[in-house]
Simulated scan of single mutants.
Amino acid sequence: MDTEAQHMERDRSSGPADGTEEGSRSTHVRERPAASMSWGRTVFLGMLCTAALLLFSAFVLQPFLIPSGSMQPTLQIGDRVLVNKLAYRFGTEPRRGDVVVFDGTGSFVPETAAGGNAVGTLLRGAAASLGLAEPAGSDFVKRVVGVGGDRVVCCEKRGRLEVNGAPLDEPYLHPGDRPSDVAFDIVVPDGKLWVMGDHRSNSRDSRDHLGQPGGGMVPVERVIGRVDWLGWPLGRLGSLEGTDAFTGVRPADGDHG
């Protein structure tokens, strides 16, 4: 009897033949769906955060990668700027001296039918809206020099631009650049903007579209937003400095800017 009792106790205390405890096996089985749920939750949260960033970029603040040197020295190639999309949403219009990002379709580039790979275009657009890729070829960044009603002339006897008869001293110009090598005398229609790059000798801007439909004028409704901050590189992080170059410009008729 004692021998039989000992065998029975050994049988109860002994585990499976492979030495793995039953509790451990059941724990491993339960961990697999738990790990899968954790991975799924991570993917979902990642998608949610991306969607939130895209919405924020679409309506509030959009990163914008500077693709060219047309705005040097104010903006350098590779800078990431933050475009304030609320700047002109509540009745406020662009002012002289503002640095703006705009869609140049119909003014700087011709109207064309959309084409190409739709998925690729969508992904590229999403990356550009997060500042991870160059912007669409129809998006530009320039400085507002004239608003609706302004007469902009190049150039007066000292070689400066004039806006409504007031000569401009433009400290933001690229060193060595003249205000313009192209002579012009234009009046900006209401609801339009005359824009120019700060690197005048390396900027394709309103001057390059004189004589074309639209005359190089950018419709105000095509403005995406105002460049208010520099987000990258870290050494240039901060708000974009304003300018007092237009302080002496008298308002044009009907201008409230």
Rank of each mutant, 00 (worst) to 15 (best):
G231F: 09
L237F: 08
D198C: 08
D228S: 14
G231N: 10
L237S: 07
D255M: 12
F184K: 02
R200L: 02
V188E: 08
G215M: 12
G238T: 09
M217A: 08
G254W: 12
G231M: 12
R207L: 01
G248N: 15
P233M: 11
R178M: 04
P233H: 08
D244R: 12
W232L: 08
S239Y: 09
V249C: 05
R178C: 05
D244A: 15
G191Y: 11
G197C: 02
D244C: 09
P179H: 13
G248V: 13
S206Y: 02
D228K: 03
W194L: 01
M196T: 11
V182S: 06
V227S: 00
G242Y: 08
P213L: 06
V220N: 03
L230I: 15
H199R: 06
P179W: 03
L234Q: 08
H209W: 11
P233Q: 10
E241M: 04
G216N: 08
R250S: 11
G197V: 01
L234M: 12
A252R: 11
I186H: 04
S203Q: 12
G231P: 05
H199K: 01
A252T: 14
E241S: 02
L234I: 15
S201I: 05
T243N: 03
P219V: 13
W232D: 11
L234P: 07
P213E: 09
D208Y: 12
K192Y: 08
G211M: 14
D205I: 04
R204C: 02
L193R: 00
P251S: 03
V195N: 02
G248I: 14
V187D: 05
G197I: 00
V249I: 11
L230T: 07
M217R: 07
M217S: 03
S239V: 09
P251V: 07
G176D: 15
G225V: 02
R222T: 13
P219G: 10
I186L: 15
D198M: 06
W194F: 15
